[in-house]
Design a protein around this nucleic acid. Structure first.
Lengths: 254, 254
DNA sequence: AACGACTGTTTGCGTTTGCAGAACGGTTAT
DNA sequence: ATAACCGTTCTGCAAACGCAAACAGTCGTT
């Protein structure tokens, strides 16, 4: 796992570097992308035209953009997760009742990917979308997941991705993180008190399978001023835990 | 558009052939995939390990599967469409009120891609998911879109993808299709009376931008026995059209 | 416990094929 | 008109990719 593959296909790496660049720029022309990635124009052109032929990229208005064909694979991957379909209606309900933003995150390759996000009436607008990948240590969702992985696995993840700081409250120390994870395991849910985004608070609970593997985590998040003490520390955790329990039951019997 | 690219990157094609095979098989081992695609084991292995390194593929339980990283691009592509976010709550409402299955489809590269699907209480279970790509001529959604493309464009699409038959009622004749499209344009909405799946009826309406380009189409679908005459021909079209109009207004002013 | 059959992985060689720089043609702005 | 910019095509060189075969694990069987 740790050592990188020996015989790597460079063209594959390059393909996705180009896809990534295209997404970063939000669509681009050949020249623009080639300077952005520091690759020859012709190379970029060859890749883009091949990708376009395969419908992974669209050409419109003199610029290339990411195509919907990725959704074919992305949605498929999402449906492989046993909790997505089950969590959807329950999270919708939770969002409705709390009025806030609710999320579903799962771990893969040591990072978290948002599988679903649903908005209650007062939900904050954050720029993240479904499909975004985040470091696990800086969100309530991620910590809820980390708390239920083996210590070795957590070490491995930290080695791979580090503990990058996103706000002044982010936990960046390995030992402190492990302490927090122990608390979370005991308590049953996790907090994020502006550790990832200033002004944003979040409550998350893990979703466990019947053999205690962690399948993912769900959360409610909102602005700190609306997540004041009692609601943040008592009320919302109760709601999130209830929902997580429902999910665990539904996952087991389906 | 019609002529294929000159300098195509074979590795890119191969990459996505492998991804496609993996999805078809629902996860597979190296040997299994290599026989399925008729490629050397080592070649498949090199691709898979590169893809795994980039998190586009996951290795677990001695088999490789499609990774969630595709969702990063897929969800991004979906959000590029101006109607997705707007349509979501409205389709949820429509599904709730009718109790049936509601869909959002957009066109890209001459094919339709489902961007969203939401289920009312009695909704039929169909095996399709978000991200699936379908031919446009055999669904109500697709025909609603085709009806608002230029005749040349429709010809181009038929040349590229043909008019494959999926049920005995599928329209497979070019001229007949054009006649139906003219009717749809006049009427404002489209039907699918078991043209794609036996036993399934569907009503769809296009969503147009203020300059009359077609942005996509929405639909309600359900079992023929529950979509009897009045409901199928009068009531549901009315509901679908109302929702489409709401979307058009919201798209224009946002 | 040793074997065999099955995996996934690594090695090394011959050559395909992808790379990069430069030239081409088309469009827009000055 | 002309210049600057774009996307696309062309071409020779060499990197790197594809392939067959050997290697190394893992499981089940006797």
């Amino acid at each position: 796992m740790a050592q990188s593959a020996r015989n790597t296909v460079k063209s594959v790496e390059r393909t996705f570097r180009i896809i990534g660049g295209l997404q970063e720029l939000g669509g681009a022309g050949v020249t623009e992308l080639s300077t952005h990635l520091d690759l020859p124009k012709s190379t970029v052109h060859n890749y883009l035209s091949t990708l376009e032929q395969e419908a992974y990229v669209v050409k419109a208005d003199d610029e290339y953009r990411i195509g919907l064909r990725f959704l074919e694979h992305g949605a498929y991957a999402r449906n492989q997760s046993p909790i997505f379909e089950i969590a959807r209606p329950e999270l919708d309900r939770l969002a409705n009742e709390t009025g806030e933003l609710c999320n579903l995150l799962v771990e893969e390759h040591g990072k978290g990917t948002y599988l679903y996000r649903t908005r209650g009436e007062n939900a904050v607008r954050v720029k993240e979308h479904v499909g975004n990948r985040v470091c696990l240590h800086s969100t309530a969702l991620g910590k809820a997941i980390l708390a239920h992985l083996s210590e070795d696995r957590v070490d491995e993840i930290i080695d791979r991705h580090g503990l990058p700081q996103t706000t002044e409250r982010t936990v960046t120390d390995r030992d402190e993180l492990f302490e927090r994870l122990a608390e979370i395991r005991e308590r049953g849910f996790a907090f994020d008190d502006e550790e990832r985004l200033s002004g944003l608070r979040c409550v998350a609970a893990p979703v466990l399978s019947n053999d205690d593997r962690v399948l993912g985590a769900i959360s409610v998040s909102g602005p700190s001023h609306r997540f004041e003490d009692h609601r943040f520390r008592e009320e919302l955790p109760k709601r999130v835990l209830e929902t997580a329990n429902v999910l665990e039951l539904n996952v087991t019997y389906s």
